[in-house]
């Protein structure tokens, strides 16, 4: 270890270099370990603890919280929590799929614009990406209000009673989720579509490929890097989404994010909240694992 070596043009002993390196690493890493890794580990431990009569933590370790999560309560088995978990995955998958479906035309449209105006269009997609999600979610209140055409139309077809807003409902949650996450797919996808080699598309067309085959064989493989980043950037946060189902779904369409918030808020059951978080974590890790297996050499960020 203590041999002389040349590192970035400097003749230095290994020991000295390591010492200097640790000096640089320590402040940031100490912070991250103290406030990220350690709290994460504590959350794991707490998920095995119990809840006292006043909402305090009780240090009797057991699998009780997890049993409750998969449905075993005092009154036998109910699928309530599993249903919410399943619904969260389902909403995330549908949101991702529809966002991808809408992102392709959007990206093609922007990519075809001349370079001068192209970045203006791109900025138009970026602005919602950075807009606060509370504002973007509650903005749907206005669109879905009883006086607005959408609610009147729904009332006309007897989906809802006249004079009622279209929220809270599953429909509102989907609208909110897609408008929330569409830019998450569109932006990485655009960086791939911008570099698309159109000669391949033309070659496919010259060889009389149908439109579907042109897309599957000439466009999709080329845009896969951007697409898969977009999918993972949508799927993972969509599963843990809390604001959209809270404001637009209410008690009618609860997702796992709301369930976690409830435990840390009104229910004051930290241990159960921690266990649900672990459940969400497992779902996240599973989707990341699927992603990693398919895209070995694509990096996030």
């Amino acid at each position: 270890m203590n041999k002389l070596l040349i590192w970035y043009g400097e003749l230095i002993t290994g020991k000295k270099l390591i010492k200097r390196g640790l000096l640089f690493l320590t402040p940031g890493m100490l912070w991250l370990i103290l406030f990220l890794v350690l709290p994460g580990l504590i959350l794991v431990v707490v998920s095995f603890a119990g809840r006292g009569a006043y909402g305090e933590l009780v240090w009797e370790f057991g699998l009780g919280n997890y049993k409750r999560l998969i449905g075993y309560g005092i009154f036998g088995w109910t699928p309530d929590y599993l249903l919410i978990l399943w619904r969260s995955v389902w909403v995330a998958v549908v949101t991702t799929a529809l966002s991808v479906l809408l992102s392709y035309p959007l990206c093609f449209y922007i990519a075809r614009k001349p370079p001068r105006t192209r970045y203006l269009w791109l900025t138009i997609v970026i602005i919602p990406f950075w807009t606060n999600m509370v504002i973007r979610t509650y903005a749907w209140f206005l669109i879905l209000a009883p006086d607005m055409p959408l609610a009147k139309l729904a009332a006309f077809f007897k989906f809802i009673a006249p004079g009622m807003p279209l929220y809270p409902s599953a429909f509102a949650v989907y609208l909110g989720m897609i408008s929330m996450f569409l830019p998450f797919v569109a932006l990485p996808l655009f960086s791939s579509i911008e570099r698309l080699d159109w000669t391949l598309v033309e070659a496919a067309q010259d060889l009389y490929a149908s439109n579907t085959r042109v897309f599957m064989h000439a466009i999709l493989p080329q845009t896969l890097p951007g697409l898969s980043v977009g999918i993972i950037l949508t799927l993972v946060p969509a599963m843990g989404m809390f604001v959209v189902p809270d404001l637009l779904g209410g008690a009618k369409y609860m997702l796992v994010g709301n369930l976690i918030q409830q435990q840390f808020g009104t229910s004051r059951d930290w241990a159960f909240g921690a266990a649900i978080s672990m459940g969400l974590m497992v779902l996240t890790m599973f989707s990341l694992y699927l992603y990693k297996r398919r895209n070995k050499d694509i990096d996030l960020l």
Binding site: L32, G40, L288
Partner: peptide, 22 residues
Amino acid sequence: ILHLPVIIPDIIFAAAMVVAFG
């Protein structure tokens, strides 16, 4: 460690913070 805040849903991080600050 560096990628953790990027990949985990922020609600899990928030829950961990609540417990840690507790």
